[in-house]
Amino acid sequence: MIDFVKDVRLWFAPQRVKDEGETPDYRFSLANERTFLAWIRTALALVGGGFAVDQFLPDLRWGVRVGMSLALLAVGAACALRAVNHWVRCERAMRRGEDLPISRFPVVLSLGVGLVAVSMVLVVLMGWTSRP
């Protein structure tokens, strides 16, 4: 948790990242940037999915629809915040010549998306819709 607070401070103080170590080969930085963008796209897709569930599934019960929508939106926001955090940590690790940070987040995200998919299948199979 304290590490996380330190990371958050780094988001807002770019010069502190640049103070450390040596500037890596620009190609590594660009690769890190593309990974960051891929995570941002994932986050945008999840947020878009949240809008889509609310808009295009009117037959679902209000609670189910809003719950699923909120779950997707929350995961999307978490994904975006984690993207910038991971980007800063990777940039710092490359400057210091350390190993890149490992993360549990991809597993958590996969499980979360899988959970939403399975619950959607259950909702359809069990007929938990307002209009039969």
Partner: peptide, 15 residues
């Protein structure tokens, strides 16, 4: 390299 401010702004838009 990508400026941290730009990265933060892109994330802020998504959030």
């Amino acid at each position: 390299g990508l400026a941290p401010r730009s990265a933060l702004a892109a994330v802020a838009c998504t959030v």
